[in-house]
């Protein structure tokens, strides 16, 4: 068993055991006519603040605050534990008040985006490694421009050879927009190769109208299409790895604000 598998099993076991202990403690307190929900609410506040503090840890990279990887592991398993705590706190019922509803919606959204992020960060990297050259996302537009120039130079033909009208038409009708910017984001997210196949087929269909020299140009264009498609794939997948955080992080800060409001109102009503 590898270290990571052992770590995963330990983490999940801890989450399950703690959830069961919290459930038992809640039952016990209810049986003794105590108010476990207030207590669970405070546990949830601590959990939310701890989960939000991971962002702070990332900002303070220069300080010896422990490895970010260790923080992320805590973030993941404490995040998972927050779901049963939330259910115990709300009694598995939808809250009534306005602030409570917004807080609950924010909590669930942050939780779901967290799970989505966990899924994406585990699934996408091996796929990125498997397909295309390793590229830095911010440099992809530069590589696309280079490919576009290469493709256009192929279509324009060599110095002493006339360009093929057939290939020029195909380029203008099918490839011009393809080489302008990253394309087919959704198809790549769902691992569809339909757009790539369609473009390669469009190119291949021209073969019967081409002489040997232009056939070579067509092959060069096809190679450019494949490379551009790989770049698009890298762009789509790397974007996905970045974009989910644009949901998760702002919503987390929203959750912190509404959690504080919820605490204030709850305390105010409790004191009455």
């Amino acid at each position: 068993m590898t270290h990571f598998v052992r770590r995963r099993i330990t983490g999940l076991t801890l989450v399950v055991v703690l959830s069961l202990l919290l459930t038992a403690a809640t039952r016990l307190m209810e049986d003794n006519l105590l108010r476990p929900r207030t207590w669970l609410g405070w546990v949830l506040v601590v959990i939310v603040l701890f989960l939000a503090s991971y962002r702070l840890r990332k900002q303070l990279a220069m300080l010896p605050l422990g490895a970010s990887a260790a923080w992320l592991q805590c973030h993941i398993y404490v995040g998972l534990l927050s779901a049963p705590v939330f259910l115990l706190h709300t009694g598995a019922r939808w809250p009534g008040g306005g602030i409570e509803v917004v807080t609950a919606v924010l909590f669930l959204t942050v939780f779901c985006t967290g799970i989505l992020g966990l899924f994406l960060t585990r699934m996408i990297p091996p796929r990125l490694t498997d397909r295309g050259e390793e590229v830095i996302r911010e440099r992809i537009p530069v590589f696309i421009r280079i490919l576009r120039e290469e493709a256009e130079a192929s279509v324009a033909g060599a110095k002493n050879a006339a360009p093929s009208e057939v290939l020029s038409d195909v380029y203008l009708n099918h490839l011009h927009s393809f080489f302008q910017r990253p394309k087919n984001f959704v198809s790549h997210v769902f691992h569809s190769t339909k757009p790539r196949t369609a473009l390669l087929n469009a190119l291949d269909d021209t073969r019967r109208f081409l002489n040997t020299q232009h056939e070579q140009t067509m092959e060069q264009l096809a190679a450019c299409v494949r490379r551009k498609d790989d770049l698009d794939y890298q762009y789509a997948m790397q974007s996905l790895l970045k974009y989910w955080l644009f949901l998760h992080v702002p919503l987390t800060w929203g959750l912190v604000v509404f959690t504080c409001s919820h605490v204030v109102t709850a305390m105010a009503f409790t004191s009455r």
């Binding site: 300080l63 970010s68 923080w71 990297p125």
Partner: peptide
């Protein structure tokens, strides 16, 4: 104070 920041900053 904490050694190489790159290694400590890698979350994964």
């Amino acid at each position: 104070p904490g050694g190489p920041a790159c290694q400590r900053a890698c979350p994964h």
